[in-house]
Amino acid sequence: MQLLEPLEKDRSNLIKAIQMVQAEKGFISTQAIKEISDHFGIPVVEVEGVLSFYAQFKRSKPGKYKIAVCDGTACHIKGSSRVKNWLVEELKIDDGETTEDGLFSMETVACLGCCSLAPVVSINGKVYGNLNRKKLLKIIKDYKNRGDN
């Protein structure tokens, strides 16, 4: 894989390599696993073992807008489970799933480091804090209106 060329073939770069592929493609395909395995000269099963250990890595294509619902301690006590439920109801997807139109995917994560604004979600890395239902639904609507482009 061209992307990996500059990366030294040292085993210690394996996670970095997977991160690079995911940053580029959004997920790790079977083909990518094989190419990573080739690059480092380590067995495919080992690459799979490593990547499946870490929560960050996805094996399937996520939505255009990746929603991370913070369920860190501060957010949890400020009602993150409700935030999640609002999204489940609105988007009809559960943790780890992607909407049919491929627009949104959702996962819960632990602490985005913005606990003082709890409860928070992040969408494609942008953090939204002090949420209530109305505010959240408005944010989602804005993204929907942006749609595919």
Binding site: T30, I33, P43, V44, V45, E46, E48, G49, S52, F53
Partner: peptide, 19 residues
């Protein structure tokens, strides 16, 4: 050889094979 490896983690850790 290297035909087996753990996959996933925590309670759902399992021994897996290549793909």
């Amino acid at each position: 050889k290297y035909l087996l490896e753990f996959k996933e983690r925590g309670y759902y850790t399992r021994v897996g094979t290549e793909l």
